[in-house]
Design a protein around this nucleic acid. Structure first.
Lengths: 228, 228
DNA sequence: ATTACTATGTTTCGAGTAA
DNA sequence: TTTACTCGAAACATAGTAA
């Protein structure tokens, strides 16, 4: 992300372009961003290319409005700053829908190099060799999950390792309660193809059996943050 | 403000440098900011020069911590984003201590070009030719005042004008209640030498007399935001 | 008025490297 | 290992200007 473009977007938001289209010329905008008219024009073009704003011709100038995607750019920063300045919240709730994945996560977590660390660092007796996969559906849940991705410093680091076949990256985990009953851990597996709407949970035993839940059921996770 | 430096500071905050010193080498930091070690080193030097972070040598590297001033840089953006995303608040409370100023503001507001507009746009019967000056002392009050400065789009624009002697700039005003009793308006006079800790209030009559207040008294202002 | 291109000037970046 | 300098290269901003 270019930080100049982010700040240009931020200024447009201050000017009210977040809920409504605003009429602004490149000359007026250049004053707001303290740059030349040419630079302001270029910024507007670049913001549009990124899909952060939409433009509509109007007279000799144009109307501008921040798009959903642009809104998210700003909101992501806002949420992270919120987690920095108002970390009163010791836990974050995330709800998702249970589904059966490809057991890739299960393969990972049952590697000895990881398993030993999970047991030691999470204080678990054992690790069940599989993960509980949840699909996140609401914006609120996805937002909260992003906070975890961005605040890995609030999680527990499980260090990666190498064996003769391949390299295993670090895993960041957050202790959690599943449906307010079972102690588990939410995993953020580094270097995995990063899917924003899926979370994976491990526990000392088979969660599905213990909670008697099946695919499609809603499952609530309360994620605990470190240092609180 | 350089936006790259702001984002570098933001990343340090994410890494936890906001409440405690963190140990980070320029190489590690370079990965966080997606730049070279040289650039990371330069950024750290520049952040220190700006006074946004402090450094302490440690072994061959150093400890970093965000300073009060750096904290404010981040918080300012956070507060503005808050006013953008959570504008539920229809009014903002600001408290300050009454003092006698140089009546510069009073001179301004009694110019005919302004006075007519105040009466029309604020719906006041008259304008008393003087301003009530308040000195802000708490961080909370200064923060709230900054929101007004940053969200002038939520205020009422009184347009500037020229006479043969000089040019008078725009004035942005916000309707307000003084001590929950008197209707007035808080003024943000553009191009004035900008003093963050002082606010000026006008009203249709002499507020000091009406409220029987004197220098040193605490006065509470409830500022109303437009578009709500 | 505008927007936005080209050409030139300025700033910023990172490879190489010293300490 | 570090940090942080120099300097050529790459990126970026602005003046001039056409449409």
């Amino acid at each position: 992300m270019s930080s100049e473009l982010w700040f240009s977007l931020f200024i447009l938001a201050k000017l009210g372009a977040i809920n409504k289209k605003i009429e602004i010329s490149s000359t007026k905008f250049s004053k707001e961003i303290s740059a030349s008219q040419q630079t302001a024009s270029r910024r507007i073009i670049e913001l549009e290319k990124l899909g952060w704003i939409s433009r509509e011709p109007h007279g000799t100038g144009h109307y501008l409005q921040i798009t959903k995607s642009g809104n998210n750019q700003l909101k992501d920063v806002y949420n992270i700053l919120g987690s920095i300045f108002e970390p009163k919240q010791k836990s974050i709730e995330i709800e998702g829908e249970l589904f059966t994945g490809m057991e890739e996560g299960g393969y990972y977590v049952s590697r000895e190099g990881y398993k030993k660390q999970f047991i030691k660092k999470l204080g678990f007796k054992d690790i069940y060799p599989g993960t509980l996969n949840l699909e996140l559906t609401t914006e609120e849940d996805i937002k909260n999950r992003k906070i975890l991705l961005d605040r890995k410093d609030l999680g527990i680091v499980i260090e990666g390792f190498k064996n003769k076949d391949r390299t295993y990256g670090n895993v960041i985990c957050f202790k959690c309660k599943v449906n307010e009953k079972i102690d588990g851990a939410l995993l953020e597996i580094e270097r995995t193809h990063h899917k924003e709407t899926v979370i994976e949970i491990i526990a000392p035993f088979h969660i599905r059996t213990a909670l008697n839940i099946k695919d499609g059921d809603k499952v609530k996770i309360r994620v605990f943050l470190n240092n609180f």
